[in-house]
């Protein structure tokens, strides 16, 4: 039980980490269609668990 909790906590990222990941997505997207990039960004935000202290 304790182990699964630790695992869950480590999957969480801070807002700063999430934003840095999103910026890399934008930077590497020069040939991507805008609509696809937005979809990827939206997906990433929705899927990411933001760590509690940042909320």
């Amino acid at each position: 039980m304790k182990d699964s909790k630790t695992k869950e906590a480590s999957a969480e990222v801070t807002l700063e980490e999430l934003v840095r990941k999103l910026l890399v997505m934008v930077r590497d997207s020069s040939e991507k269609r805008e609509i696809d990039l937005r979809e990827d960004i939206a997906k990433k935000i929705k899927e990411t668990e933001i760590s509690h202290e940042d909320k």
Partner: peptide
Amino acid sequence: ALIGHIEVI
């Protein structure tokens, strides 16, 4: 650019 995309989302 990212701010613009997030705003639209």
